[in-house]
Simulated assay, not measured.
Amino acid sequence: MRVLGIDPGLTRCGVGVVEGAAGRPLTMLGVGVVRTPSDAETGERLVAIERGIESWLDEHRPELVAVERVFAQHNVRTVMGTAQASAVAMLCASRRGLPVALHTPSEVKAAVTGS
């Protein structure tokens, strides 16, 4: 199975593609960051994130998209940007009919490293 993993963020949205099968080591096929300028309007930044994610979807053709779940922070502004970037990722995947899985940061680390 090929999975596009997304660590959402408004300034830096991490992306990575892994491929593998149950019980076997994963193979990293690509890793990168979709960046947006912090001084741009929020709408422009979300469009840039969408374009970046769409490019990764076009290039790698994943079977599933895994998005790191937004977790509570004290900084509401940071949470909002992360949630908006997360929604863009889910929209891009859903538009293509790809299943979306939401995982906490701990679940992602455990799934990838086994620990």
Rank of each mutant, 00 (worst) to 15 (best):
C92E: 06
V15G: 06
T82C: 05
E59L: 09
E44W: 07
V100S: 07
D58N: 15
V79S: 08
S106N: 14
P62A: 05
E63G: 14
A21R: 15
V100N: 09
L29C: 07
V3G: 06
V65W: 00
E19T: 11
A22S: 15
P25C: 14
R77V: 02
M28W: 02
T113G: 12
W56A: 06
V15N: 02
T104S: 12
V79W: 08
H74K: 09
R45W: 06
H103G: 15
Q84P: 01
G52A: 03
P99L: 15
I49Q: 01
G52F: 09
A48I: 04
A87F: 05
W56K: 07
H74V: 11
R96W: 15
M28T: 06
L26K: 11
T104F: 08
S86C: 10
Q84V: 05
D7G: 00
L4I: 02
Q73M: 13
G30M: 05
T82A: 06
V88W: 02
S55C: 04
L10S: 00
G5D: 04
I53E: 02
E63W: 13
V79R: 09
R12N: 03
G114C: 13
V17K: 00
T36I: 07
I53L: 04
A22R: 10
A22K: 11
L10A: 00
V33C: 02
T78G: 04
N75K: 11
G81Q: 01
L57E: 07
T104K: 10
G32P: 12
V70N: 07
R61W: 15
S94Q: 12
R95I: 11
E54V: 04
F71R: 11
G9Q: 01
M90H: 04
A85I: 00
E19V: 14
G16S: 00
C92T: 07
R96T: 03
Q84N: 08
G32V: 10
M80D: 03
G43K: 03
P37L: 03
R61C: 15
W56L: 05
G16I: 02
A66G: 14
C13N: 03
G81K: 01
V47M: 07
E68W: 07
G23Y: 14
R35P: 11
V65P: 07
Q84H: 10
H60Q: 10
